[in-house]
Amino acid sequence: MMSDQAALFEYLLRLGDNALILGHRLSEWCGHSPALEEDLALSNVALDLIGQTQLWLNLAGDVEGRGRDADKLAYLRDARDFRNVLLVEQPNGDFAATMARQFYFDAWHYLLLRELTGSKDSRIAEIAAKGLKEVTYHLERSREWVLRLGDGTEESHERMQTALDDLWMYTGELFETDEVDQAMIRSGMGPDLSTLHEPWLGLMHATAEEATLTLPQPGWAQRGGKRGMHSEHLGYILADLQFLQRAYPNATW
């Protein structure tokens, strides 16, 4: 069985990597968004997530005790060592795909952080409380876009429906528990992820209905990100994200 310390490190990597990879994906929109307001908004959400990444990964480095800080963990690990869920590494696609991905993630992220504010590890509870305030706005915004595009023009409706359908298979992984999650539940540090599924689905159904969209049926779930088995997209993200530190090791501003 995995030691509690090792499980905690893994768990913190998952939290940090989810925020890092989604934050990076959103930053790819900077300068390319459909409108200036959206450009600013996407960059701001990215910034929040990168800020949260620093908190989670610095804590992961402390727990590991091998002298790695957030920067070292972000810039010097290979794809197989990343622990983010597959959903966050999916390409931006069109604006509907970006907002559907965000809505699926934000609702889960919100529910997870809310649980983590009650973690027995006060360091986790503090970061979660900070992040929760930010994620509340992320969720409000991504939900509004799902409504606006779903209940918009024929084309926007179709694009949002396609985005919900295409990304659905990546949502199953969010609620699965493995030995790392079990260790966190045992020590009172993290919630049982399966308990988040019902409130998450409730919000999804209510939103889809209001947006005149159809929520996909439960089905085959893609999984593996939490254990380091990623889609090919992650390699391309890391090529971009890590280039500078790989080409010029230890470069600083």
Binding site: E37, E38, L40, A41, N44, V45, L47, D48, E134, Y137, E140, R141, E144
Partner: peptide
């Protein structure tokens, strides 16, 4: 409201 985010993370437009 035009956007949930403004010129800095703490503001909306």
């Amino acid at each position: 409201r035009i956007s949930e985010f403004g010129s800095t993370p703490c503001k909306a437009q």
